[in-house]
């Protein structure tokens, strides 16, 4: 094979080298693209602001308190007995994003609902005690939530998100 007549139809060593060089180039460009893309993700300082502690003892029945967590509002709602009865009475089949009220609160603290105050439609902040179910109403495009923060009407697809939280004592909740 030491002749100088190239056989164009046959894959040769040269074709292999072309493809190999191209492949290395693509992998290299991809490897460089990742840092360029990832620099836009939340940085270390944004990730560090991960949890807050809130004193809940002063929240009256029927009252909603808004606190800020990771730059977002979080609603802490001390629900009345009637509100709790209402949300428990709803059959799961009537819900767009079916979830029982019991799955959205902590045992022993059923009156306390803690949800991220960001409408699951396009991110506005819903208004408390408003809308058909007197849970929340989002003024932006009219989503209606019940006192369990579950979506009942309007364009939002999901229930208000329940963040990770735990009771440090009877009075203090740690969110995040």
């Amino acid at each position: 094979m030491a002749t100088s007549t190239p056989d164009l139809a046959d894959p040769s060593r040269r074709d292999f080298l072309y493809i190999a060089t191209g492949a290395v180039g693509v992998v290299g460009a991809g490897a460089l693209a990742w840092p360029f893309i990832d620099q836009m993700n939340p940085d270390a300082s944004a990730l560090a602001l991960s949890s807050i502690e809130v004193d809940i003892s002063a929240i009256q029945p029927g009252q909603i308190v808004t606190v800020q967590w990771r730059g977002k509002p979080v609603f802490i709602r001390n629900r009345t007995d009637k509100e709790m009865q209402d949300v428990k009475a709803v059959p799961l089949g009537d819900l767009k994003d079916p979830q029982a009220d019991a799955a959205r609160v902590k045992k022993g603290h059923e009156n306390l609902l803690i949800v991220v105050g960001v409408c699951t439609h396009l991110g506005c902040i819903p208004l408390g005690h408003q809308g058909e179910y007197e849970g929340w109403f989002c003024p932006c495009h009219g989503s209606v939530y019940d006192p369990s923060g579950r979506i009942r009407k309007g364009p939002a697809p999901l229930n208000l998100e329940v963040p990770a939280y735990s009771f440090l004592s009877e009075k203090v909740v740690k969110i995040g």
């Binding site: 893309i37 836009m40 939340p42 990771r70 730059g71 977002k72 960001v118 991110g123």
Partner: peptide
């Protein structure tokens, strides 16, 4: 969305970019 924001909501990183 998180990538666009550079955080967990619209904020300083979003404004900068």
């Amino acid at each position: 969305v998180t990538w666009l924001w550079g955080g967990f909501s619209v904020g300083d990183p979003t404004l900068n970019r």
